[in-house]
């Protein structure tokens, strides 16, 4: 479980399941909230899972910025 949660796709998949689990007890007027929140997590899980797979199977070192290009940084990556 700890290993699953340590990856972003695993973490978001668990978050999607927890969100959808609240469907069992939530009032009908708020069911869409659980569905939408779980949907966002499921989408994020798929996207990060795909990124994880392509990074692992891609040309060696390319995604790590070793192919002659510095890895892209953004303002929040300090």
């Amino acid at each position: 479980m700890k290993r699953l949660l340590s990856t972003r796709h695993g973490f978001f998949a668990v978050a999607a399941l927890v969100s959808w689990a609240t469907l069992l007890v939530i009032e009908p007027e708020f069911r869409w909230v659980s569905l939408a929140t779980g949907g966002i997590y499921a989408t994020l899980s798929i996207l990060f899972g795909a990124e994880h797979l392509t990074r692992d199977r891609g040309p060696r070192g390319r995604s790590r910025g070793a192919g002659g290009r510095a890895p892209r940084t953004h303002p929040d990556s300090s």
């Binding site: 978050a15 927890v18 609240t22 909230v33 966002i40 994020l44």
Partner: peptide, 25 residues
């Protein structure tokens, strides 16, 4: 009924905040 609504959102509110935080970012 009221306690159920409050109880569910104890779990859901940080999850909604987290989902929106990731999405906005």
């Amino acid at each position: 009924e009221g306690l159920r609504k409050i109880g569910v959102f104890i779990v859901l509110s940080p999850l909604i905040g987290l989902a929106l935080g990731v999405s906005f970012m």
